[in-house]
Nucleic acid binder design. Structure first.
Lengths: 151, 151
DNA sequence: GACATATAGTTGTTTAAACAACCATTCAAA
DNA sequence: TTTGAATGGTTGTTTAAACAACTATATGTC
């Protein structure tokens, strides 16, 4: 209603997320420069497996905000790269548990360091207070849209 | 170095832009519910042509933060949908000028209204002050990363 | 004017997202 | 216990992003 804070040019870049795509591109570039041959999407899956190894594909869907087909194919590609392995669950034969390989475990430290440096590049000159507020806004936006508009 | 404000879980969602992907998904959904059969990527190109009709593909690249192949294919698809037309420039025969069709001109009002409403849904409960700061942070991030890290 | 270089755009390939349709297994209810 | 719904995952299709390699035109320099 009266909450329309966006002039034309700003509306576009807010919606299309030019800042977050810029971060993603820079991270991909930094991976490449360090001879890490994974995509940021693959990295985002590994990221959650590093936090907790052995998750079902559905858990990875929830963690990464992707749908099931997307995770199926990301896991396909990670398996081709020998970074993860699908293991059929004994309890529930519908479930694939995804486990990290030794190689993937070794990627953790370096890639997290690169991600952290990338974020520092991105946030240069931004104060802690501003970062806190930006985080709150982005979280609020996510929460506002999490629930479907038509129930 | 000491600017590392991000705990694990937050780093991931900041980099992968879960908020902006959520906005993009909601906008796409709202287009669909209003029987607007365009993608958000196509909309983002039209958006800049509504601001100024008759731009070269290179200008659209700069405006939408996409590379040349991406714009070539978006314009291909928009042309198939009869929403834009490529017109060879008389001054410089390398250049295609892109012009809106009558149909595309008629999409402007409705789609901008939907985009604006979508942003309002997204920003519910966020104060004007917070929005201003979030905008500043995102702009700063974009500026920080605009210049290549290795010149 | 001839040649190198820059600019504008296209094509090919790989990776991924979104959506629909589908199969297999499990669970719940009659 | 059988049947119907829910859950977990896969496959097919369209759209798009990123990157490399390419063609055509324009420009600048000798």
């Amino acid at each position: 209603m009266s909450n329309n804070q966006f002039k034309r040019g700003e509306l576009y870049s807010f919606i299309t997320g030019k800042a977050s795509t810029a971060i993603a591109r820079r991270l991909q570039k930094n991976f490449k420069q360090n001879n890490l041959d994974i995509t940021i999407e693959q990295w985002s899956v590994l990221y959650h497996l590093w936090k907790e190894d052995g998750q079902s594909q559905q858990q990875l869907c929830d963690a990464t905000f992707r749908d099931k087909p997307s995770i199926t194919r990301l896991v396909d590609n990670l398996e081709k790269l020998q970074l993860v392995k699908r293991v059929a669950s004994k309890d529930d034969r519908r479930i694939n548990m995804i486990y990290l390989s030794k190689e993937a475990q070794q990627l953790q430290e370096q890639s997290m360091e690169i991600a952290s440096q990338t974020l520092n590049e991105a946030l240069m000159g931004v104060t802690n207070g501003q970062i806190e507020i930006a985080k709150e806004v982005l979280q609020k936006v996510y929460d506002n849209l999490k629930t479907p508009s038509t129930p």
